[in-house]
Write a protein that binds this DNA or RNA. Structure first.
Lengths: 208, 208
DNA sequence: TTTGTATTGACCAATGTGGTCGATGATTGA
DNA sequence: TCAATCATCGACCACATTGGTCAATACAAA
């Protein structure tokens, strides 16, 4: 345990990433420690020198993902009252987080859907707290006066949220097919703003 | 092969469903024929009596899913020019299809994402054709005059599509948590229409 | 040189894999 | 009624993979 935290950051990160990938792809039961050490480029013995067994590795990854998500993503979110400003900020922070901690978010998502039974109550509680904090950061103190009067702002917010998620997924697919070209990211942001513009016209006052 | 198609429908369906589930959950490589026969309630030998091996079973499932999707879902879709009428119809047809062929759609989705390398070119071509037909049924001859002039209708359509998908996923989650109560489906449809109402006000003319 | 830590991969028993096959019911046709 | 065919099972096979161990090192510090 001490040994692992004293590793050079690069090596540490390579192991964490290999583990993230394996657990995310196959789930807890089917994830293979052999695959993890192979992809991490370390000998089999080392994994069990750092972590006493598969389960402890798994728990470490969860704690790690929770902590990073909170400190490096959640706490950096904007609290602008304009819903779209807030969501635009979310997109930016998410991109930054994903480049620094790839797979951490996917891992968390997969865990919560499929491997909940592996978690004891204290970790489940941490996850619940994180979810609640996220929800609060995202949706509290939104300025609903910006919405057109005849529109149910609560439902509108849901719709907008779904649209953002849909766009995000579409971008993810595109980036997997084409090879990620950093120069193109500008195009994506331009397109992104166009979609935001359409939604503002649709839901906000003054687009009449 | 002949043997399998001559089975009583109920038994046939139980096997198909067990196989759908296993392949959807674990992907082609990790899917276990032992699990399939256990969940299907048949002896190990029978699976290889019906299908010569795992791969042929897999191919059969794909052909089956493609055929059913086309005949029992795609061909029944409405071609109303009003986007919302069309999408409301999609929701209804999808629900009907899912109750009759659970997991067929999930299976197809999983296959296309993860197991594309298992497919030969003729099947890939069939899938491409199905995708293209689906796209055409969903989006051709939409009446864009219904949209407010100042709104980019093409982008609006995308947004609406994402919103429908988001709502669908939310309902799916809710139905998994609560136990499915058929009486509640009416409530869901009422809620569904409210969301449609909000979007109509937002994107269509005459919501001034 | 000695001591202690990092590192490896061959090795282990256990489990699971896709697939086979001989035995046994069940159904049919003559 | 008897034989032949079909349907069904699960024990069994060789093989691959599993999570985890450990004796053997290499290396660093003292």
């Amino acid at each position: 345990m001490k040994a692992f935290s004293n590793l050079e950051v690069e090596k540490r990160q390579k192991i964490i990433n290999a583990a993230f990938n394996e657990f995310t792809e196959k789930g807890y039961e089917l994830a293979s420690t052999n695959q993890i050490v192979k992809n991490a480029g370390i000998g089999k013995g080392m994994l069990f020198y750092y972590f006493t067994n598969k389960h402890e590795l798994f728990l470490f990854l969860i704690e790690y993902a929770i902590e990073k998500t909170e400190k490096e993503f959640l706490n950096k979110l904007s609290d602008a009252p304009d819903l779209f400003e807030r969501f635009k900020n979310v997109a930016i922070q998410k991109l930054a987080f994903l480049t620094q901690y790839p797979n951490a978010m996917n891992f968390m998502a997969k865990v919560m859907i499929n491997d909940a039974e592996q978690l004891d109550e204290t970790i489940k509680e941490k996850i619940r707290v994180l979810e609640q904090k996220t929800h609060q950061r995202l949706y509290s103190k939104i300025d609903t006066d910006l919405f057109r009067e005849e529109i149910d702002s609560e439902k509108a917010i849901k719709i907008i949220q779904w649209a953002f998620r849909g766009y995000e997924e579409e971008i993810t697919v595109r980036l997997q097919n084409e090879n990620i070209d950093v120069r193109n990211l500008e195009n994506y942001f331009a397109e992104f703003h166009e979609y935001v513009g359409v939604m503002k016209k649709a839901f906000y006052k003054g687009g009449h």
